[in-house]
């Protein structure tokens, strides 16, 4: 498709119901916000091409449903994902506490262990904060995740969250170049090795 796209990356968004996963995605892809957004059914899918360090990457983003009744479907999306965005609601401690469960699930179903993880604390525009920024940071560090606080409503940190994640994935060539060559279902026919890549493990995060 696009000639100059370096690679296509599969990104997954997970987290409890109502933390704003779909809102984050909508803000990122369409730059809109809908306070009345309906609950996701099954999974939503969006594609967006972004440019990080001069490398264009096409993101195939799977936005999973947080509702319990769709939980059984989630395992099917983990496979082959290069990056995952784990979202919690800073105004709801329970969504933060449940993160451990999500990490467990990730571990169980994910096909690779070097998947890049990004923790996003959403809804920082709200007054009634329940989870401190430092808590989130500590949790992210403990599980070697990237971390950012964001608000889909005010657009704070949304772009940054996705860019950081992609940057980190691109800096880990083993994560995506082999994948693009021997995947059963090709995301794009134009995928060629890795041209940019750059230094391995140049880990610079928002920490």
């Amino acid at each position: 498709m696009d000639e100059d796209v370096l690679t296509t990356l599969k990104i997954l968004i997970i987290g409890e119901s109502g933390v704003g996963k779909s809102s984050l995605l909508l803000r990122f892809t369409d730059d809109t916000f809908d306070p009345e957004l309906a609950a996701t059914i099954g999974v939503d899918f969006k594609v967006k091409t972004i440019s990080v360090d001069g490398n264009k990457a096409k993101l195939a983003i799977w936005d999973t449903a947080g509702q319990e009744r769709f939980r059984t479907l989630t395992p099917s999306y983990y496979r082959g994902a290069q990056g995952v965005i784990l979202v919690y609601d800073v105004t709801r401690r329970d969504t933060f506490v449940k993160l451990d469960n999500w990490l467990n699930e990730l571990e169980t179903y994910c096909t690779r262990n070097d998947i890049v993880k990004m923790l996003v604390g959403n809804k920082i525009d709200k007054e009634n904060r329940d989870v401190d920024r430092n808590e989130g940071l500590k949790f992210a560090r403990k599980h070697s995740m990237l971390f950012i606080e964001a608000s889909a409503k005010t657009c704070d940190g949304v772009q940054c969250a996705f860019e950081e994640l992609v940057e980190k994935i691109i800096q880990t060539p083993g994560l995506w170049e082999s994948e693009s060559q021997n995947r059963g279902v090709k995301l794009s026919s134009k995928e060629e090795g890795y041209g940019g890549g750059g230094a391995c493990g140049g880990y610079c995060s928002m920490l």
Binding site: A38, T40, I41, G42, V43, D44, F45, K46, A60, W62, L73, P75, S76, Y77, R79, G80, G184, V185, K186, L187
Partner: peptide, 23 residues
Amino acid sequence: PDAVLPAMTAFANGLGGEGTETF
């Protein structure tokens, strides 16, 4: 609901084929 169309279109375009067994 129509909201599932993007995901279904993605499936029908060859994305997410990894999930066959789970489904």
